Amino acid sequence: MFATLGIALPAQAQLPTITIIEEGETLREETAEPDFTDPNDLRPLTQSSSLLSLAGGRRLMGEAQSAISAQNYTLAVQKLKEARQVFNQLSGFYAQLSDSFSGIDNRISDAQRNNALKTSELRDEATYQLALVHRAQNRPELAVPLLIQIIRSQNPTTDLGKKAYDQLAIGQPESILSFEGGQRLMDEAGQAISTQNYPVAIQKLQEARQVFNQLSSFYAQLAESFSGIDGQVSEAERGNALRTSELRDEATYQLALVHRVQDRPELSVPLLIQIVRSQNPTTNLGKKAYQQLFELGFVNSTYPRSRVSRTDSPNN
């Protein structure tokens, strides 16, 4: 008689029953071809339930908007971050496919390049919405990096690039990520130094360095983004980048002095060298940093050298 093997598969891909014919028996049951009635069932990434798809990313965006309407900003941030990740992954994958088919099948290459562009725009739109949520939370220090990412990605001339630039909150005095925020930290460090509260002084100076360093980087990125597009904006941002880098180096110098007061020259020396390299030895701050290196005994020659020392020691 017949022995039967049952194999359970999804309904859309159910295989027929397999029969084993024993010796002396004849086949009494014909096998049927698999019935794939709906091609979409074999393409799960085209379905709205898929996460790694345009539909999946848009679904996350819709959930984020619902959360924003309910002022549930925590949930909105989570959904927007997930949407950004989905669109960013998709854009990267489409770009890789486009490169792979370049010169082989340009029709596929161009289609995938368009998909990469489309998903990158959706990623930047999710990024913009996330920046707005951070502003609604009164956290411009989180919004600013996102807005600058959009400008660099989209170009300042696009609608989204223009909107991102208009939203930039770098100059808001209440934000820690601003000239005023960094200066407040410097003032607090000065007060701590005057009372010899060196741990607090170190903490405040390190925070000030970080603020000014971030600002300098952001301004430099904006200057680059506007180069060749709006020279006035580019020059203004370049000036801001220079100003904040000088403030960062001033905070670094003060931090080096605090370490020296604590008799920890091993912590002062790297900071002082950073200043010399950043500011150039010819600037006032560069000269002061080098003088500290001389007083610590790390270098043996003074700068600038006097006329007498050059005459008496021509080989120095």
Score class of each variant (00 low, 15 high):
2 F>E: 12
3 A>H: 12
6 G>W: 11
7 I>F: 08
10 P>F: 05
10 P>D: 11
14 Q>Y: 02
15 L>S: 04
17 T>D: 10
18 I>Y: 05
22 E>I: 11
23 E>I: 12
25 E>T: 15
27 L>E: 14
29 E>F: 13
33 E>V: 13
34 P>E: 05
34 P>S: 06
38 D>A: 07
39 P>W: 05
40 N>A: 13
41 D>Y: 06
43 R>L: 15
45 L>E: 15
47 Q>D: 06
52 L>W: 11
56 G>I: 05
57 G>H: 07
59 R>D: 09
59 R>A: 09
65 Q>Y: 06
66 S>T: 08
67 A>V: 03
67 A>N: 05
69 S>N: 15
72 N>G: 09
78 Q>D: 15
79 K>A: 10
81 K>H: 07
82 E>C: 02
82 E>R: 11
87 F>G: 01
88 N>S: 14
90 L>D: 03
92 G>D: 06
95 A>I: 04
96 Q>D: 14
97 L>C: 00
100 S>A: 13
107 R>C: 00
108 I>W: 07
108 I>T: 09
109 S>G: 04
114 N>P: 01
118 K>A: 14
129 Q>V: 02
133 V>I: 13
140 P>L: 07
141 E>S: 14
143 A>F: 08
143 A>G: 12
143 A>P: 09
143 A>N: 12
144 V>K: 10
146 L>H: 13
149 Q>E: 15
154 Q>R: 15
155 N>L: 08
157 T>S: 14
158 T>K: 03
160 L>N: 06
174 E>G: 15
175 S>G: 12
177 L>C: 09
177 L>W: 09
182 G>M: 07
182 G>L: 08
186 M>V: 08
190 G>L: 12
192 A>R: 08
195 T>W: 00
198 Y>E: 02
200 V>W: 00
202 I>K: 03
203 Q>G: 00
205 L>Y: 08
208 A>C: 02
216 S>Q: 03
218 F>Q: 09
218 F>A: 01
220 A>R: 09
221 Q>T: 07
221 Q>V: 08
226 F>A: 01
226 F>H: 03
226 F>Y: 11
228 G>F: 01
231 G>L: 02
231 G>Y: 00
233 V>Y: 02
233 V>F: 09
233 V>E: 05
235 E>N: 11
238 R>D: 03
238 R>P: 00
240 N>Y: 12
245 S>K: 10
245 S>R: 10
248 R>T: 01
251 A>W: 04
252 T>L: 05
254 Q>D: 04
258 V>Y: 06
263 D>R: 15
265 P>Q: 10
267 L>S: 02
268 S>Y: 14
269 V>H: 04
270 P>R: 04
271 L>D: 00
276 V>N: 03
281 P>V: 06
282 T>K: 13
283 T>Y: 08
291 Q>W: 09
291 Q>V: 05
301 S>E: 12
302 T>K: 12
303 Y>V: 02
304 P>I: 02
304 P>F: 07
306 S>P: 03
308 V>F: 10
314 P>S: 11
315 N>H: 11
316 N>E: 14
